[in-house]
Design a binder for these strands. Structure first.
Length: 903
RNA sequence: GGGGAAUUAGCUCAGUUGGUUAGAGCAUCAGCAUGACACGCUGGGGGUCACUGGUUCGAAUCCAGUAUUUCCCACCA
């Protein structure tokens, strides 16, 4: 065996294993019909993105799941991809063009797209290569990009099909308009932010009643010029007489009617609402009901147009707000201004307030809402943690039509052509098809592209080549669909998760108006959804570029090693909760790896016989001499099985954090701190059985740990020569608890050894406490033990050698007398420490304290056991337990009292 | 306004259907070069389980209410 250094140095092995895995095609998609399939689709990162902590967590989890699946004898694949990131990329390219003096709007669509593609090729896709270096085990040869020809076909086919099925329509409606990126947005892309603003009270004169006026509250005086009416609630007694009259619009002066509409809230402000049909969703609805004119005073970029009147034309909306206020004040039409906090919608990408704007867009009325609902509520798709189901269902219950067109160039261009010089509002003049019309010269294509999410929602179908049947079978759709688990953040539950489910319900299989439960089950895109937490900094803030509170993942790799980083991040990720990032945990991850490294070094140290070649578990077990097995061997092997059962359950339920803690606790506490230490005495004698037990534990740990820390485990697996000819352990089978039980059958493991070892542990702990309290010098000391019975005596006698080693004692002796030494009670008897000088008052104080504590417990038990209700209602084992405790504590107290009386 | 989640040691969190004296890791304190590991080992201290009621023989756990924190949805008057 080669010489391993004291410290595990991650970077020495990472590169090697990354290339090895990919050279050996460990992660290539294959189909093995004898095995269960397992498939994860990577949520495609934005082509514009760079690796951040969220990706790290998300992809580490996916990697853990897929690697674990491979060890569980599943035929597993993980398909990576990349999202073209519509607005995001377009904004980036525009910025770059402007910086180099090019007006992106003027160069035309084709040239812009050339620039965009060039940008993508140069800067795009950083993440995937960064992920590769983090050890993710996806099939990099099989990357899907949302603008690929095949994938685009899926996106466009979906559009065309939905149009044919009557779900897509073109409409002139109020949409969320981003004046910065000059495109419409979906409701989901609007972020509400609380803003400190002002509530202006504006005075409108009543035309028919000179000298009379009404006051109206508004936060947006710049839209007054677009007012088409003034509305009150029909039930509002105060204003009943006004309905049907007119009032004077104070800016861009005109007479506008006073109308009554239910949409007005009597209790807000003065109870009067100004109606600006082109610039508010409610207002637009009111205007439609009352056939009001629509006065659109805004340009797409947020400046005002001629309809606003000469004095405002060309000015920005916020400049106009100030000017309007000034003017109203001069006119005496502004009786009151109050400070006011309200929520304002911001454009997610542009980060400016969105403008509700009337415009013509493509809308989708969601299909298969009921089915998408059932898929989750009936448990065909399981959410982890389950509570996100409510959020999902609530969204579906309140779903609004989706504006899917974007006024951008980068993306999937809407597959609709209009007859040249014809009326576009008449659908007779449309050609809606994946293929362009044959006499293309007579047609012009819709200028817009689809919302990026209207392409990513096809992900589970598109990656498998839908709708092309040939491609689908080539991509093994039948075998891998539905995919196993989707790992993503809850922040895109509406954007993406819900929509993927809807798309799958609608498009998989024949077109049907509704689906049976069986059909829903067949169409689900994934069986489980694992929602990760959101990574926050230690102040609980989201990690973001603007706050600068996100560490650079690759720096962390350099500091803690990839394995340490992976382990650390999972350690701090309790399931179902946001996680507070703490670099301390990464240190723990690194330390864990180092501990594993050294435990391995220990298990291989000083071995005279040759390393194994190709070692199946059975061969190692066969090296054990059953007669040589001692209590610790029995206990550690029994514990290994117990721990594996726990671990398997946790992994099955996606409790990664808990699983890591179990494995860490078994490895560190049971194995390193107890078994390794206890076995040192026997290892002096080249005990084959002990070597074999170490080997079994190490081998199993490496297999179980591999999904979490793939580099170090593969390295050790090979150094340890569990496999001959330096093969990676990636696709090896990991024995289950059941397999272990079978393999250990011939060993006749005694499970009661676990309890006995627990007693020994406590005995040891208490003895050590006594020693550390009363230690007089660095010399080794002597203990005298007074066991309460034969059984305890025998346990201790068998263990004497180990005890001496573990406590570092000069001598252990047994006694049946009460000695004048400092003492402590243990489950295996009273222990006396031989000292030259005893501090009697101190000892007396200690004993009295202990006696008092016992007395309290005894009292408690007595009270409980004298309670008739308790005796008649509590289950037998609880009563028995209480009695046993009373007995034991009474006995203990008597013992201590005796010692005390002798002092 | 509607809904979700959280509240347990200084910090981060476990605590399974109520049941013996509430756990872990980190931090802290003390000790230790003990045949892998100081990225380590050993031991100690530290909790009125947010609060108030209720159900129960028995409540961190179940119920009701209160408080605080937090997230999501709705909302440019």
């Amino acid at each position: 065996m080669e010489d391993l250094g004291k410290v595990f140095i991650s970077e020495r092995v990472e590169q090697k294993w990354t290339s090895k895995w990919h050279d050996e095609c460990c992660f290539d998609k294959t189909v093995d019909n004898s095995k269960e399939s397992f498939c994860i689709l990577m949520p495609p990162p934005n082509v514009t993105g760079v690796l951040h902590m969220g990706h790290l967590l998300n992809n580490t989890l996916q990697d853990v799941f897929v690697r674990r699946a491979r060890h569980c004898n599943k035929c597993a694949t993980w398909i990576p991809g990349m999202d073209h990131a519509g607005i995001s990329l377009q904004v980036k390219v525009e910025k770059e063009l402007i910086q180099s003096g090019i007006n992106p709007k003027k160069i035309g669509r084709e040239m812009f797209l050339d620039y965009a593609r060039a940008w993508r090729d140069k800067h795009g896709g950083m993440i995937l290569s960064q992920l590769k270096s983090l050890g993710v085990s996806c099939d990099f040869k099989n990357q899907i990009y949302t603008l690929n020809e095949n994938y685009s076909l899926a996106v466009l086919t979906a559009f065309v099909e939905l149009y044919k099925r009557g779900y897509i329509y073109r409409g002139k409606r109020i949409v969320n308009w981003c004046p910065k990126t000059l495109t419409a947005l979906s409701d989901e892309e609007v972020i509400m932010k609380p803003q400190k603003s002002k509530l202006y009270c504006v005075r409108y004169d009543i035309v028919e009643r000179p000298g009379q006026f009404i006051d109206i509250s508004t936060t947006r005086p710049e839209t007054i010029m677009g007012d088409a009416a003034i509305a009150v609630n029909p039930d509002d007694e105060r204003y009943k007489g006004l309905v049907g009259l007119h009032c004077k619009r104070p800016l861009n002066i005109a007479d506008i009617p006073i109308i009554a509409d239910q949409a007005v809230d009597k209790n807000f402000g003065t109870g009067i609402l100004k109606i600006t049909p082109a610039h508010g969703a409610v207002d637009f609805a009111v205007a439609q009901r009352h056939s009001l004119p629509i006065i659109d005073i805004l340009n797409p970029d947020g400046t005002l147009n001629a309809l606003a009147g000469d004095e405002f034309v060309g000015l920005d909306r916020f400049v106009v707000r100030e000017k309007a206020v000034e003017k109203l004040q001069m006119m005496g039409a502004l009786p009151k201004v109050e400070e006011y906090e309200n929520n304002v919608g911001f454009s997610e990408r542009g980060d400016v307030p969105i403008e509700p704007r009337l415009s013509e867009q493509w809308f989708l009325k969601y299909p298969k809402i009921h089915e998408a609902r059932c898929a989750v509520s009936k448990g065909f798709i399981k959410f982890y943690p389950k509570r996100w189901e409510k959020t999902y269902l609530h969204w579906l219950d309140n779903i609004q039509d989706w504006c899917i067109s974007r006024q951008l160039w980068w993306g999937h261009r809407i597959p609709v052509w209009y007859k040249k010089n014809s009326d576009r509002s008449n659908s007779d003049n449309w050609h809606v098809s994946v293929d362009r019309p044959s006499n293309i010269a007579d047609w012009e294509q819709d200028e817009d592209v689809l919302d990026t999410w209207a392409s990513s929602w096809m992900w589970p179908l598109g990656v498998f080549g839908w709708p092309n049947q040939e491609k689908m079978s080539q991509e093994c759709f039948q075998y891998f669909y539905p995919t196993s688990v989707l790992v993503t953040g809850p922040d895109i539950i509406f954007f993406w998760v819900a929509r993927m489910i809807i798309a799958s319900m609608e498009f998989l299989g024949p077109d049907k108006k509704s689906l049976s439960d069986e059909e829903i089950k067949e169409r689900i895109p994934f069986k489980s959804v694992y929602f990760t937490g959101i990574i926050r900094d230690k102040f609980g803030r989201k990690m973001s570029k603007s706050l600068g509170n996100s560490p650079e993942p690759l720096d962390l790799v350099a500091k803690y090693g990839t394995d340490g980083l992976r382990f650390g991040i999972l350690l701090s990720a309790p399931s179902g909760q946001d996680l507070i990032f703490n670099e301390e945990n990464l240190k723990l991850g690194r330390n864990f790896c180092n501990k594993l490294w050294n435990a391995f070094r220990f298990s291989r140290i000083n071995r005279s016989y040759k390393p194994y070649s190709q070692v199946p578990l059975a061969d190692i077990v066969a090296k054990i001499e059953v007669a040589d097995l001692d209590i610790d061997d029995h206990a550690i092997l029994s514990n290994l099985i117990k721990f594996c059962i726990t671990f398997e359950g946790q992994m099955k339920n996606f409790e990664v954090n808990a699983a890591i803690n179990s494995i860490s606790s078994f490895f560190w506490n049971e194995y390193c701190n107890w078994y390794v230490e206890a076995s040192k005495v026997r290892l002096r004698g080249e005990n084959k059985t002990v070597f074999a037990v170490h080997d079994i534990i190490m081998r199993q740990l490496l297999l179980l740990l591999n999904p979490f820390i793939p580099f170090i485990t593969d390295e050790l697996w090979n150094v340890g020569e569990y496999e001959h000819n330096q093969r990676s352990m990636q696709n090896l089978y990991c024995e289950t608890a059941k397999d272990l039980q079978l393999a250990f059958h011939a060993l006749n493991l005694d499970e009661t050894s676990i309890a006995t070892v627990l007693q020994l542990k406590e005995f040891l702990n208490l003895s050590r406490r006594l020693i550390s309290q009363c230690r007089e010098s660095k010399e080794r000391m002597a203990l005298y033990i007074c066991p309460p019975n034969e059984v305890a005596m025998n346990i201790l006698k068998d263990y004497t050698l180990k005890l001496q080693q573990l406590v570092g004692l000069e001598k252990i002796d047994f006694t049946d007398k009460i000695l004048q030494f400092p003492s402590i009670q243990t489950p295996l008897g009273i222990v006396y420490l031989h000292v030259t000088q005893i501090n009697t008052p101190e000892e007396k104080k200690k004993l009295t304290l202990e006696i008092n504590k016992l007395s309290k417990l005894i009292k408690l038990s007595e009270v409980q056991l004298s309670n008739k209700e308790f005796l008649s209602r509590a289950p037998a084992h609880i009563i028995e337990g209480s009695k046993k405790m009373l007995r034991e504590n009474t006995f203990k107290r008597e013992e201590l009292c005796k010692i005390l009386s002798m002092m």
